[in-house]
């Protein structure tokens, strides 16, 4: 093992060890604050009580988690189809892009929490309404990133394709889409987290009025009943889910790009 490998290993170890140390410190600190001040569990439960609740309420939390997760990935799937589809369409003609892109921006910048109640009014099925909400926030990063990628193909390569009489479809397939891959995957990573947030926000708005049964609904319900430990347990699940989604798409991105893209390359220096 040479010096470079040794330092690389040390970096890996530090990357895991340092956040772990911080986590332990925070948990111990949290526990001490709760114990020393004798804070009641319905105000702030200690980490051990949260862990116990997590295990005790597993039967309630697990199905709720599955509902939220399913919704998140469904929204993401529709966002990928819609975002990529629109990006390809926009890339075909400046006219289409100029005509419709501002509306995509409007959809993105309008706070979801403000339009979610309207969507719930107009769409009969709460499930579909929540899906639409999650889709609205997730699709924009995919659209804008993919569009940027499609338009950033090397100009000389475009010329070369034209020189050989390539069709529009060939340019799209062999040049624009591969050029857009790193951008699309970057958008996907952002969209994964946003889809989860969208699903949670929409469930919140639907609230107890809907037949929602996702994690957000469980948090609301537990909050009303002052079952604060369960709120914390569900929150922890949501955070973990977000982290896992991000890690999943980071891994996919790395696998797809490791042969050629700068972002996924190992560096010796």
């Amino acid at each position: 093992m040479n010096a470079a490998e040794r330092s690389q290993r040390r970096d890996y170890a530090l990357r895991i060890a340092l956040p772990a140390v911080i986590a332990v410190l925070v948990l111990v600190g949290w526990d001490l604050v709760v114990r020393l001040n004798q804070i009641p569990p319905y105000t702030l439960p200690g980490p051990l009580l949260v862990a116990e609740t997590f295990l005790a309420d597993w039967g309630t939390l697990w199905p709720a988690w599955l509902v939220t997760l399913r919704l998140t990935f469904l929204a993401l799937l529709v966002a990928v189809i819609g975002g990529v589809g629109l990006a390809v369409l926009f890339a075909q003609s400046k006219w289409i892009e100029f005509s419709f892109f501002p509306y995509a921006v409007i959809l993105q910048v309008t706070p979801l929490i403000a339009i979610a109640p309207l969507i719930l009014i107009y769409v009969d099925s709460t499930h579909v309404a929540v899906l639409i909400c999650a889709w609205i926030v997730a699709f924009f990063p995919i659209l804008s990133n993919t569009l940027l990628g499609l338009n950033s193909a090397d100009h000389n390569l475009v010329n070369l394709f034209q020189l050989y009489g390539a069709t529009r479809w060939q340019i799209l397939r062999y040049l624009r889409i591969p050029s857009a891959m790193p951008y699309f995957l970057g958008g996907l990573r952002i969209a994964g987290g946003l889809a989860l947030i969208g699903a949670v926000v929409a469930e919140y708005v639907a609230g107890t009025a809907g037949q929602g049964s996702g994690l957000a609904y469980r948090i609301l319900e537990a909050g009303y009943r002052l079952r604060t430990p369960r709120v914390f347990a569900a929150l922890a699940m949501l955070s973990l889910t977000g982290i896992l989604i991000f890690a999943l798409f980071s891994a996919i991105s790395h696998l797809a790009l490791r042969r050629w893209h700068e972002s996924a390359m190992k560096r010796e220096n």
Binding site: N156, N159, L160, Y164, Y174
Partner: peptide, 24 residues
């Protein structure tokens, strides 16, 4: 046509880069 820069497709192997004109 040979450009000032190599102008290769970074996602494709040497073989696929050279194959491009024939593929098109």
């Amino acid at each position: 046509f040979v450009f000032q820069e190599p102008t290769l497709m970074p996602w494709a192997t040497v073989f696929d880069n050279v194959y491009l004109p024939l593929r098109l």
